[in-house]
Each structure stands twice: as C-alpha cells, then as structure tokens.
Computed example of a mutant assay.
Amino acid sequence: MKYKFMEPYTFNKGVTLKNRMVMSPTTTMSSFYDGQVTNDEIAFYGARAGGIGLIIGEVANVIASGKGFEGELSIADDRDIAGLSKLAAAMKQNGTKAILQIFHAGRKSNDQILRGKRPVSASAVKAVFPPDSQEPRALTVAEIEDIIVAFGAATRRAIAAGFDGVELHGANTYLLQQFFSPNSNQRTDKWGGDRNGRMAFAKAVINRVAATIDESADRPFLLGYRISPEEIETPGIRLEDSLAFVDQLAESAVDYVHVSMGSAHRTSLNNPADHELIMTKLVKQLAGRKPLIGVGSVETPADAEAVLGMGAELVAMGREMIREPQWFEKIADGDEASIRYQLSPSEMDELKIPRAMQGYLKTAFYSVMHFTTDPEAAADYQNQAAPMEGFEQKL
C-alpha cells in the first residue's frame, strides 16, 4: 500500500527528505560523563537509520551550565566534534538526514549534575515538578548574552560534524521555554515583562543561530524549533501564548516548527471546553508559512497518515522507533504484519537499546512502552502530559 508519508518532502532551503517520517529526539542517557559520544549511541542510531527520512538526534547542551541530566550529549566544546561526526554518519546511512537538537536545561538541573554549581534560569523561581527541584539563580544579562553566543558556537560545531541541521529545544520546560513562561520568567528588564518581552531570548537565539548558519555552512543547513503548547502552572504558558509565539516563528528564520506532545489528538489541558485539536490550531496559525512536524503516540501507518491528515507536513515518532527500528523498511517491503508494536525486555540488547536507556524505559516510561511482560493496558496520553514534557499532571 502507498501511504502519503512515503512521499518525499523538500524544505524551502532545498533539503529533500526521501519520505515524511521523522524519528523524534529520543534520549538514551548514554554519553560519557563529559558528554562525549559513546559507541552505544552510535549503534542505537545506526540501527534506526536508512529507512525513515529524518532522524532528530537527542539533545546536546551548548554550555556547561546547560547540562540537565547525566549521560547527556555535549556540543559545548570543539573536542566534541570528532565524536559527533561519527554520530552524524551513523544517522545518515542510505540517505536519511540528521538533525541534532541543542539546548540549555536551565532550572531543570541540579547542583549534583552541575558538579556543585547552582542551576540557572530566567528568574530565581523553583520548578513545581519534580518536587525536589532546586531554586535556580537568575541569570545576569552578561550570562544571557554568553548563552546566546554558545548556541551559535554549537551550531558551528554541528555544521562541522556533518549534521544537516539543528533543532532548538524550546519545549519540555527547558531554558528557552523558561524565558517564555510567565511562571519561570519574572524579569523586568528587556529579557522579560509582557509576552513580547518573554519572546526576546528565543528570538535572539534564533537570530544568532541563523547568522552562524549563513556564515559557516557550506551546504543547505536546517534550523528547527520545538515547542510545548501549554503549561499547567498558574501563571503559565497557555495556548493563546503559544499561538502568538508560533506566529512569530512563522516569520522567523526557522525552517520548521516541531510540537512536543504525548498525543497528536490532544486538546487543551487547561480548558476542557475547548475541543479543537492543538495540532489543528497550530496548522491554522502557521497557515503554510512553515512546515509542522506533528507527533504524539504515532505507532501504526494509520496513525502517521492521521497526523498528515491534520495538516502537518511531517510526522515524528519516538517510542515506536525504539520498539521497531525497521518500521519504515517493513512497510516499504509490504511486510506490515511483522512490525513490532510491543517490546520484549529480552530483546532490548538485540535492538541496540543502551543499558541506561533500558533502565528508564522500565521505570518512567513503563506504562507506555507496551512491554510484553506488562499485564496492564497501555496508558493513554491523549488528555495528559507525558513524562518527557517536563511536568506532572494530576488528573
């Protein structure tokens, strides 16, 4: 059967994906203590490359203060380029394109991860989730400017490493989102204030990265931006805020917008009376100005087609790519019946899933990984937040 997601897609910059399927950023937590690439990571991505059109690699920190968890990739130093080059090469087998997600964790870190240093954010406001979050230190203006420069330097390294683009991680309550949120950003200078003021940091990072691409790239190089559409804290980001921000992204230098949600069929977490899908709202707001990568519990070919039917140009999946590295190849071969939709704990080594990743799949993601040994029905993210979104929703 021929599906729409099997058709190629060409970005305005001229980068062509051989199909519209994207592997979401999938955290392996398997880098060395200093953020250097490991063979486990190379094997994991290499096993999943070659069929789908694009892999977005897991997040890498752009500066030491931006590290958010142990086993996290670094792109903060030129010494990281050699290992990242091997990672990019593994992802780019048989024409798959490779983008690296880059970020600063902000207050979503702690002094253990930062080796005794206090986490930083837009303001000295502690995160609600997890409950043991530490109060961050408010960044100085000079430090903000240093981080903006660091995003540019990281982009130069990604270009040198052979990636086809970078994605700014402005979702899942990390620093870019923290500056946009009225919960975590209570500044009164030019980096805070009203909604437009809270967009200033993201705009400055986008502009710096775009300028670096213009200066350093010897080939078409993509710039993406990932957003979380809502927060549940009060005050917090609401859908109308995100739609205003998406309107700005549509006029910016980014090449695509990528939404972060546990379900592609989600409606508002804050307004139960609003029954319009968030994906539909985003498509309407973008109005064809930028392509949208839709995501959220995509497992079957029908799921992928449904996301494209909502108006997204590309469709991403994460957990199913962990379970089934050959998802696209099996569909292309007319072998859909053999696709894995469950994960056997005894097959995780065979599937090149790193040991650290196996650990958290069995814990934080246990209820949604469809383990063959799980007697419970899989959890549904349709009207709740997923663990990777950075906050816990009590239903």
Rank of each mutant, 00 (worst) to 15 (best):
V128G: 12
L286W: 00
D380C: 07
D194R: 03
L277I: 09
D349I: 12
N61M: 13
A287W: 12
V62M: 04
G309W: 01
A332C: 13
N383E: 13
T212E: 01
S31W: 01
G224H: 04
I322A: 00
R266Y: 11
T373F: 09
K203N: 07
V15Q: 00
R115Q: 15
I159Q: 04
A76C: 07
A47N: 10
A60N: 13
G53R: 06
I331Y: 01
S24E: 02
D111T: 10
D111Y: 11
A217F: 07
V166A: 04
G170L: 10
T96G: 03
I63E: 12
H265Y: 13
D80N: 14
A302L: 12
M369H: 04
V209C: 05
Y174S: 09
A204Q: 08
K108G: 13
R195Q: 15
Q186C: 10
I293D: 04
R115D: 14
D303V: 05
D164Q: 01
N383F: 12
G116A: 08
G262R: 02
L395N: 15
A386K: 08
K190V: 12
F179R: 07
H258V: 01
Q101W: 00
F69T: 03
R115S: 13
L351F: 07
N207A: 14
S268F: 07
Y3F: 14
E336I: 12
Y45G: 06
R323M: 01
H275Y: 14
L351Y: 08
I144Y: 11
R48H: 01
Y366C: 09
K126Q: 15
R355H: 14
I52P: 03
L239P: 10
Y3R: 11
W191D: 12
P272E: 07
L100A: 05
A378Y: 01
Q393F: 01
R198W: 01
G162D: 05
K86G: 08
R323I: 02
I159R: 05
I63R: 09
L84M: 11
I237H: 13
Q248Y: 14
N271Y: 14
E299G: 13
I99Q: 03
T38E: 02
E251M: 02
M261Y: 02
A337F: 00
M310Y: 14
T96P: 07
A122D: 05
Q384W: 12
K352R: 12
H370M: 11
V15I: 06
E305S: 03
A302T: 14
H258F: 06
S123R: 08
H258I: 02
D194Q: 02
P387S: 01
A211V: 03
E251F: 00
A364Q: 15
N185Q: 11
E324T: 05
V37P: 07
D333T: 00
S263W: 02
G162W: 03
A217L: 02
A304R: 05
S242L: 13
T140D: 14
A90P: 00
M21S: 05
A356N: 09
G53Q: 02
G170V: 08
I147V: 11
I52L: 13
G83I: 02
P182G: 09
R266S: 15
R48S: 03
N110G: 10
R289M: 05
S74L: 11
N39E: 15
S263L: 00
A379W: 05
Y3M: 13
W191F: 12
T373C: 04
R118H: 11
N94S: 15
E41W: 08
I99M: 00
H265E: 15
M23E: 06
Y9Q: 04
L176E: 03
A386S: 12
K352N: 13
D40A: 11
S109H: 07
